[in-house]
Design a protein around this nucleic acid. Structure first.
Lengths: 339, 339
DNA sequence: GCCGGCGCCCAAAACGTTTTGGAAGACAAT
DNA sequence: ATTGTCTTCCAAAACGTTTTGGGCGCCGGC
């Protein structure tokens, strides 16, 4: 491996000058700088990241920990998120470290290791919970982080970027009401997740706006997977008075609900309406295609990284809380007539 | 941030002793070691990763570069793969670095940076191509890597772990033949991908085994996405003599094909049979559920990391080439009678 | 009483950068 | 001739570890 001294030696320069030439300082002659750059290229010199980190006290990396519940998980949301995080980080010459940990002790250790060994300069949080110890932990240490999705500690005091789940589901309810539905079910997620609270609130507000009462039995809990949606859908459709429309808290859940409906011999879009949330690609190719609230995960991930890196480099506090509005995409799952 | 000197100072020991105590050397008294460990815990000491890397000349990290073609991509395969890589790496105290790059110059730069700046100790390759410059590049530099999927340079000389695509598709063809199909289509991927070659070969062998001829028009190229499968399906089904069964090179492709069939008014599983490959969760929840060849991506990812880390630490060359057999899962998409 | 071996500890060198605080020379102004 | 100002370069000190090559007592065997 060629080091900076090799370059310096070849040119009969000091390593100081080589370092400064490559870093673009203006106290090195233009001609010298060119020679240095040429030599570095010839020798294939790339600075040792470890040495640089040690000296600069910066990891030039950000971290993201996948919250995996089961070992075999595959949520398209995260693939897109990671691609966005990685691309934006790379464009600013940062690396992205990824780990996965089931919520609990293992997770806590993972965060601690990264923070205390200064392995990363900042962290992206996803799937935030209402009372999120991760946010508190990082904030207490004044460690830079950006949450994808809101936290509610004690208000939205942490930098975050998210999708307006409340407004989104309200829109969805309004859409269903407009199509004549009065009994609308909701398949949610565990209560501690922030976006469950938000989206459920949107459901409640949406019903209220249409002067519809809310009945307990129509709100059931899934686990954000197709399988969870499937079971929740079975449960809802087996009610004495089943709903005529069901909203899944995310697209995967809705897709599971559709399967449950099919198995009961119902035609989705005619006998029962189903809608999701997120706008994953799968939703466009399901049978029937799924009505959903779309939002640009990839772009939001990039924005989150931009916010984070601004924090890391201590730039003036730009906008630190972003809430984007999702967009309704109407497809056949909420009415075949609609196509 | 507390450093090793803080610990040493507190205990009136040298940093050497602290270092060796924590690293488990046997030349430190048991009682001393305990005091060191306790003090380290109390002070919240975690070694600086950068300093350690610099000294040990090891990054204690492995890298993976997502081959992303479009910016917005979401392939469930990669989410599962990354989870597996991350978990196994973490269990051996390694970090996982993830980047994403479109094949081409950008990709090449990404690999070079990581290798030359010794940012990672080893690399996992996925979506290998027949003549894969990445494999050649890394092998030339004697840089440790493991390919997920075979390479064909010049034979399978590189360490890799993969799924037997040839046998898998052969099984699929046999299954379809058994169900009475004579005209079987195949929606593949770009030619340079290894697993396209393997799986296509399986298709050819499968037909030969059933004494069926192969007709050019039944083999079309997709791009591994639902959208690509959709277009390829339209093409196949619009033929004067359309196939009665179609194999998608992966599940996403097959799901796109099913959508194309539905749009032509065909009932998948009755009018036309469709089968996929990979066993993603989505395949179990599609309409109809998709017949597929299943393989344990998550576990294979973990095995790949184990191989890689063995290579990195220069352990005796254990088994370095693994080919696992996928398992046929028959679902309604290849015959409603089957359920 | 001497020697070898063992158990425990440590000083100092290294790892490859970046940064600090000048130094040397050229030139201009006084 | 002196002083000051630029421009261009550099030696040396960090950064926080790990590792090398011992040192110092103590004990047992001769």
């Amino acid at each position: 491996m060629t080091t900076i001294r090799d370059v310096a030696h070849k040119l009969h320069l000091s390593i100081t000058t080589v370092s400064r030439a490559l870093d673009g300082y203006d106290d090195v002659a233009a001609e010298t700088r060119e020679r240095v750059i040429a030599a570095a290229r010839d020798l294939g010199y790339v600075p040792s990241r470890a040495a640089r980190q040690l000296r600069r006290k910066r990891a030039e990396a950000i971290g993201f920990i996948l919250p995996t519940w089961q070992p075999r998980f595959s949520d398209p949301f995260f693939a897109e998120l990671i691609a966005g995080l990685g691309d934006e980080a790379a464009s600013q010459h940062f690396d992205l470290l990824v780990a996965s940990a089931a919520p609990g002790l293992e997770e806590k250790n993972a965060y601690q290791r990264w923070v205390q060994s200064r392995r990363v300069d900042g962290i992206i949080l996803a799937r935030t919970r209402l009372d999120d110890w991760r946010a508190r932990f990082l904030a207490d240490l004044h460690f830079p982080f950006v949450a994808y999705g809101r936290t509610r500690l004690p208000e939205d005091i942490y930098p975050h970027i998210g999708v307006d789940g409340l407004a989104g589901v309200r829109t969805l309810v309004a859409h269903l009401v407009e199509r004549g539905h009065q009994r609308i079910g909701f398949v949610g997620a565990p209560d501690d997740l922030t976006f469950q609270a938000d989206r459920l609130a949107g459901y409640v507000e949406g019903l209220a706006a249409a002067s519809l009462g809310i009945s307990e039995e129509l709100v059931v809990e899934g686990n954000l997977t197709r399988e969870g949606g499937y079971r929740a859908g079975q449960q809802l459709l087996a009610l004495p008075q089943p709903p005529s429309a069901i909203i899944g808290i995310n697209d995967l859940t809705a897709i599971g609900v559709m399967r449950a409906a099919r198995e009961r011999g119902l035609v989705v879009g005619r006998d029962v309406a189903v809608a999701g949330f997120d706008g994953v690609e799968e939703a466009a190719h399901s049978d029937p295609p799924l009505t959903t609230m779309n939002h640009p995960t990839y772009d939001l991930a990039r924005q989150a990284v931009r916010m984070l890196l601004a924090l890391v480099s201590g730039e003036p506090p730009v906008v630190t809380r972003i809430l984007v509005q999702p967009e309704l995409i109407v497809r056949a799952s909420t009415g075949l007539t609609g196509e």
